[in-house]
């Protein structure tokens, strides 16, 4: 493999973390289940655009996010519904609602597209936050890879517990591919299950940053260079600042 984004870092970065970024960017550039590689890379570009969007800043500052009208500052490669989804998830995730999610879908996004876009946004947010935290610039976006999306929808997916359909562990079938570390996997693991490949791509990245699924509930064990309570102080503060209840 060639150089990594972490080559210029002031401290050595563990190899699995650097490799997880390279794998994730390759996955983002590749055709997804519902989106082409070009659309996925355009979503990654829009994530970065959203960080500087004046409308998003205004919405976040408003008492009610629905009270602000205007147009997002967009790179122009995505539909209006895609732009709204990307920008709100990036800029003000703690005030999203089921009614808002349904309004985005009603503007012409399929449920699978919505979930796949959320997966790409979350992956880009992780990688850009990690490099920023270590004093590095954003990695250049990858060139999109050609190929067709598969359009696979898990037959066991149903809308019940969340705003979008999920595949409960007992409803997963072989064609979905591996999804859960355990039949008791929490809802955070199930969130992207409508698009199993997005789920796998996301967790391959996230587990290298936080903790693998088989360690998360072993509170007396740490596999990182900081203690488990220290890990959870960071986790709790980041979540609280995003107004995330989960």
């Amino acid at each position: 493999m060639g150089g990594s984004i972490f080559d210029g870092c002031e401290v050595p970065v563990r190899a699995d973390l650097a490799e997880s970024h390279e794998r994730a960017w390759t996955a983002i550039a590749a055709p997804g289940t519902w989106l082409t590689g070009a659309r996925r890379v355009a979503i990654a570009a829009e994530v970065r655009r959203a960080r500087e969007c004046a409308l998003c800043a205004e919405v976040k500052a408003a008492l009610s996010p629905g009270a602000v009208r205007g147009a997002h500052d967009t790179a122009g490669a995505l539909t209006e519904a895609e732009v709204e989804l990307v920008h709100r998830v990036v800029a003000d995730p703690g005030r999203l609602s089921e009614r808002w999610a349904q309004s985005v879908l009603a503007r012409g996004l399929a449920e699978g597209e919505y979930v796949e876009i959320v997966g790409v946004v979350a992956m880009v947010m992780i990688m850009d936050a990690c490099t920023r935290a270590l004093g590095l610039p954003d990695r250049a976006l990858p060139a999109p890879l050609d190929g067709a999306s598969s359009g696979y929808r898990p037959p066991g997916a149903k809308k019940q517990a969340a705003w979008l359909p999920l595949v409960e562990p007992e409803d997963a079938v072989e064609a979905d591919g591996p999804m859960y570390p355990s039949p008791k996997a929490g809802y955070i693991y199930r969130a992207l299950s409508l698009v199993p490949q997005s789920l796998r791509d996301y967790w391959a990245l996230a587990s290298c940053h936080y903790l693998p699924g088989d360690v998360v509930y072993q509170f007396d064990r740490t596999i990182r260079a900081i203690s488990r309570p220290q890990t959870e102080v960071i986790a709790a503060r980041v979540s609280a600042l995003h107004q995330c209840v989960y």
């Binding site: 999203l96 959320v118 979350a122 947010m125 969340a162 979008l164 960071i234």
Partner: peptide, 12 residues
């Protein structure tokens, strides 16, 4: 956690 919060809150 920049990713987890977005998964949780966008999927509800």
């Amino acid at each position: 956690f920049h990713g987890f919060v977005r998964l949780a809150d966008a999927i509800g």
